[in-house]
Nucleic acid binder design. Structure first.
Lengths: 98, 98
DNA sequence: GGCAAATATAATAATATTTCAATAAAGAAA
DNA sequence: TTTCTTTATTGAAATATTATTATATTTGCC
């Protein structure tokens, strides 16, 4: 149950956690739910510029919080539930004792 | 189970989450555990300058992640477990479905 | 009161993040 | 191939965060 976390591990954990800690990215992750959505849908749903949407998606992707898949010329994003679940555990582990 | 989160709520949640998303602050929160520690102890444990420690503590305090209590001229910090637990739920709620 | 110890604040500098605007890339479809 | 649609990238500007340094505040004790 993760008693001792090194600064290195904490740094890594904080980095991943930080990716989620942005209103737009949280909105995206929430919108994805258990399914998948293409960039246009996401963009329309959040009412954000295309480039900005793309940039946030990239960040989520690079940090492995989401996966992407191409179909025709749409790109569908989906949550990487392992990592999302991992973040929950990270928060829990970083606050031991309850 | 927080099905619909408004952008406002997400923004607020992200803001709080962001406070935790920093290696030093996570280290502090981890060090606090279920007990309390004064600033000097925290500072020595994390090997950080006094001013920086104080600033991070302030941030945690302002966002209600910790409480403080004075005894003599030491100030003891303690986790606000409600909020910490709330963050865990926040992460869970913002990633519905698992 | 005056001094020392512990903690806080403020101003600035250094860095990092986010947005914006324009352009590029990749695939579909004619 | 040409063009259209969707998504990605890039560089610069705007903002936000973090560290640094110096100074201030608060309290206990003499």
């Amino acid at each position: 149950m993760a008693k001792e976390l090194t600064l290195d591990k904490l740094t890594l954990a904080a980095k991943t956690l930080k990716v989620l800690a942005h209103p737009v990215r949280m909105k995206i992750v929430e919108f994805l739910g258990d399914g998948e959505q293409n960039v246009s849908s996401i963009q329309k749903h959040i009412r954000l510029q295309q480039a900005v949407t793309s940039q946030h998606l990239k960040l989520l992707l690079v940090h492995n919080l989401v996966n992407k898949r191409r179909e025709k010329n749409f790109i569908y994003y989906r949550k990487n539930t392992d990592i999302i679940a991992g973040i929950i555990n990270c928060v829990r582990d970083c606050t031991p004792g309850k």
